[in-house]
Amino acid sequence: MLKPFNHDCHRAALGWIAWLCVLGAAALRAETSAPLPAGDSPRDWYNAGTAQLHAGKLPEAEELLQNSVASQVAALQPLALYNLGCVRVAQGVDLLKKSKDATGRSDPAHVATLTQLAGEASRRIDEAMASENEQKMVAAYLLGGGVRREINAATKAVRQALESKKDILAKWQRAAADFRSAAELQAVDTNATYNAAATERAIAALIDKLNQLQQAGLKMNGAGKQLGEKMKQLRGTMPMPNMPPGVPGDDDDQELPGLQPGEQEGAGKSGEEMKISPEQAEQLLAGFKLSGEHRLPLGDDGTAKPKDRKGKDW
């Protein structure tokens, strides 16, 4: 049974894991080889990767340790996998730090507030439409537009937060699997089992947060869509000259545009399909290459005439 998630606590715990890993790796390195050996044997890669982990150079450490694991030296694999897990946990922690939303737009509380605001704006639009008061309509429209714009910004922030957390999740999932693999290869390695369990707890908590954020985001998006529909109805009711110019939130929805069901491509305005003979089609396809790279020269000087032509003298 997982404990209720406290994101900061788990982040701190994972930070500790990462730090302990670094210390452990440093100690191991000090034990095994005081000077960093220069070479390209799997053992050298392992030692160099451990040193890079100690130095905080995570991408380099990951690459070296990965090479060490891939070398298939049975004695080195559990050690390298353990350190690789440490590297990936630390990378996830780094990503977590970077993904912090300074604007607070992806905060679940903010998202919940916006959902409520969207409901309020929809209610006001309903009232305005019922009252048929133009000033009320304009005011409700402006309010709705403002809320929709904010919802769009928040949706964007939530989407970014979800994307970044998915990256973190991928890193930690890989790290947990690395720890588990290390424990599987070296059954006596209780540290790897402990780290795997701790990472899996953090993953579970992160998934909880992801779900929470996703649910809140979906709810907000639904409220935003409903608000958009109301605004569309309101716009249809308002006389054209009274339509507020440049009303925000109309065409910058976060949802990508696409063909709606039932919508079809319109017919051409002019011109009709022509029938041509197969011979003409063959000549056309063979002889005419669509090319935008060969522009006409500027001015008449560059125009070459291979032969005298009949026709008009330009």
């Binding site: 063909l259 319109g266 017919a267 051409g268 305005k269 002019s270 011109g271 009709e272 399909e273």
Partner: peptide, 11 residues
Amino acid sequence: MSGSWLGGRAG
């Protein structure tokens, strides 16, 4: 000619 090729969403 152009109109027919330009028609619709792609246009």
